[in-house]
């Protein structure tokens, strides 16, 4: 049994069918990449998994529990964190307060302190700027904050939606290095990326999404050598 099982989900925006019956698995410890062009439905899938959207058909189970109808605010305490597209840090709150919100559902103060120390060691810039309002951080720093905030919930799995979007090459390197670290520390990762080359570079397996359907899947290295993938997503 996979840690996260998506079965035949269909998701609508009004009458528009954005996800047309998709199934996939994420196993414990894996890094799974979900790649696809703009508008393919990647964000929609992540939102459906974490409960911000409800599928019209199909089921989602996490750790053996059916979470299809679980409201979004109950998902995080089950061990799933989501780094949303566009960061969505709370700009009116300080860096420190944003991180505290990440640990909102946790009670044990000592454990929260431990996570905070871990986040600060991964992102020393956040510690330097802990009293700064998040809205005044640079784009790259906001991305670090969004990732740090997700880690504050001590998740078993992290869903990341285009963490490298709009970042300079150095920051992109940095972010991917950190994703690998997160994975190495035992956390499962479901990664949505435009940067297919980088994503396939660190992923174990990948799914390729086209207008609401999965059209390809397989080992990341295999997909990297696939002609269609090369043409459409790797720009070769």
């Amino acid at each position: 049994m996979a840690m996260l099982e998506i079965r035949d989900i269909e998701v609508y925006y009004g009458v528009i069918k954005a996800i047309k019956g998709i199934s996939f698995d994420v196993n414990e410890g894996e890094v799974i990449a979900l790649i696809g062009a703009n508008g393919a439905g990647k964000t929609t899938i992540l939102h459906t998994i974490t409960g911000l959207l409800q599928p019209k058909k199909g089921t989602i189970s996490f750790d053996g529990k059916d979470i299809t109808k679980t409201p979004a605010h109950k998902i995080v305490s089950m061990g799933m964190a989501h780094v949303p597209e566009g960061r969505r840090v709370f700009s009116q709150l300080s860096v420190f307060e944003n991180l505290k919100m990440g640990a909102y559902t946790r009670k044990d103060k000592a454990e929260i302190e431990e996570s905070l120390a871990m986040v600060y060691s991964k992102f020393p810039r956040l510690e330097e700027r802990k009293t700064q309002l998040a809205g005044t951080l640079s784009g790259g720093e906001q991305q670090m904050l969004a990732m740090g905030r997700a880690l504050m919930s001590h998740p078993k799995i992290v869903l990341m939606d285009e963490p490298s979007m709009g970042l300079s090459p150095i920051f992109v390197e940095e972010i991917f290095k950190i994703i690998e670290e997160i994975s190495a520390s035992g956390t499962t990762v479901l990664l949505v990326e435009q940067n297919a080359k980088k994503a396939l570079g660190i992923a174990d397996r990948a799914y390729v999404l086209e207008t609401g359907n999965i059209v390809l899947d397989g080992d990341a290295t295999e997909l990297m050598n696939n002609e269609t993938v090369k043409k459409a997503y790797l720009g070769e």
């Binding site: 974490t50 409960g51 911000l52 409201p71 979004a72 605010h73 109950k74 998902i75 995080v76 305490s77 964190a81 989501h82 949303p84 969505r88 840090v89 709370f90 700009s91 009116q92 709150l93 919100m101 990440g102 909102y104 559902t105 905030r149 919930s153």
Partner: peptide, 13 residues
């Protein structure tokens, strides 16, 4: 500021 992101933190909106 952001209902959706708040829910992702586990906040009951």
């Amino acid at each position: 500021e952001d209902r959706g992101a708040a829910q992702l933190m586990g906040i009951n909106v």
